[in-house]
Design a protein around this nucleic acid. Sequence first.
DNA 1: GCCGAAACAATTGTTGACAATCTTGTCGCC
DNA 2: GGCGACAAGATTGTCAACAATTGTTTCGGC
Lengths: 218, 218
Amino acid sequence: MKGVHTGVAMVRDAVRDAILRGEYLPGERLVETDLIEKHGATRFAVRSALQDLAAEGLVEVRRHRGAHVRKVSTSEAVEITEIRMVVEGLVASRAAERVSDGQATELDEIGALMRRAVEVADHRRYHDLNQRLHALVRTIAGHTVADRISETLRGQLVRHQYTLSLLPGRPQASLPQHERIIAAIRGRDPRAAEEAMREHIASVIEALKSMEHLEARS
Amino acid sequence: MKGVHTGVAMVRDAVRDAILRGEYLPGERLVETDLIEKHGATRFAVRSALQDLAAEGLVEVRRHRGAHVRKVSTSEAVEITEIRMVVEGLVASRAAERVSDGQATELDEIGALMRRAVEVADHRRYHDLNQRLHALVRTIAGHTVADRISETLRGQLVRHQYTLSLLPGRPQASLPQHERIIAAIRGRDPRAAEEAMREHIASVIEALKSMEHLEARS
DNA sequence: GCCGAAACAATTGTTGACAATCTTGTCGCC
DNA sequence: GGCGACAAGATTGTCAACAATTGTTTCGGC
């Protein structure tokens, strides 16, 4: 079950995927020798890959102490999400300025499907549509730098994203938010689009903060 | 003629500094052998340093083609500054929420000194105070993630920052903007602080865009 | 039985050599 | 005389062995 052949990029992608899939837990140590065996790669490749992932903020390497999966605290997750809030807000704003007619139709379609998914309580599908919506907004905006940063930040939140998805009532709460985003972009209203996107992500921040309180109590 | 002793961090900082100082021009190739000789470091250190700088977005490494100083186009500089606009806006907002009385006084002092510097047309001093103001705002906000991102992005703009500083009339234009930022944070008004900071950086974006047009004409 | 120090094992950091690739300069052909 | 293929040089990518550091375990003393 592995990339039988080596290459720095291959190892990097494989390890990143493994982290994002939760195969390696936060704080877990990533021993070079193990990774060599697991991916059938050379030590050099493993080492380079870990360096790259450290640059992405997914792992942390401390001198002579090896690489660990970065453990982002809930408070740091809040900060990261705050940044995402303003960046995605900018992206939504630009999307509203640039959206084409065809893209507007596409947005509508996704919105309709989302409502449907909530009605039949298909969480999995709703989650997929959520991804598609945000991806489409990014495509419309065409903001390279924002995309890069969003992607990087999102990678650091895997653990919390998973926990968040377990929160009950999220789809019902976020559906109207998504609909507002779609309507604002459709209506080519940058300010409203930014505002809607920010409110949407702000509610995620609130959820994170409530989790923080739960953790503190336990 | 320098750091007679090696170390990855040392080489990285030295090369970064050299790039930021303009010793290496955008697009220029950074040959590993030269850097080895120049910094008296081993090849491994140079290589690691270049990887790190690539992660910071200061250099670009292409397979078998070596490392080049990253040449950011003016349009990319605009995108980067747009991100900085919203991120710094968030920071200003948080600063307004958290500012202490002592820090408010400090802000006032900087504001007064800035006005003075503009009156006597001391550009150098105004520039320093500008740095101090933004640094203080960051300190007040205490937003680790935002600081990291701002710093990274700022590094990628060196060439343009220099060009921007040559634009005439900048201090006169930005002084009232700075005063609005200070007033909003002092007044503990997050919304106003964010708005003021965004307007301030938006004017930088406008300046960049006008530069873009000038370049296109030439 | 507990604490501390020293030797050991495990793991990472570094080095130098080797292989793959690109660039440059030259030669031959059109 | 110009263009394209080929070869030599230069440069980067990869690898495996060596050195340094850290964490652990064991042994001795209190």
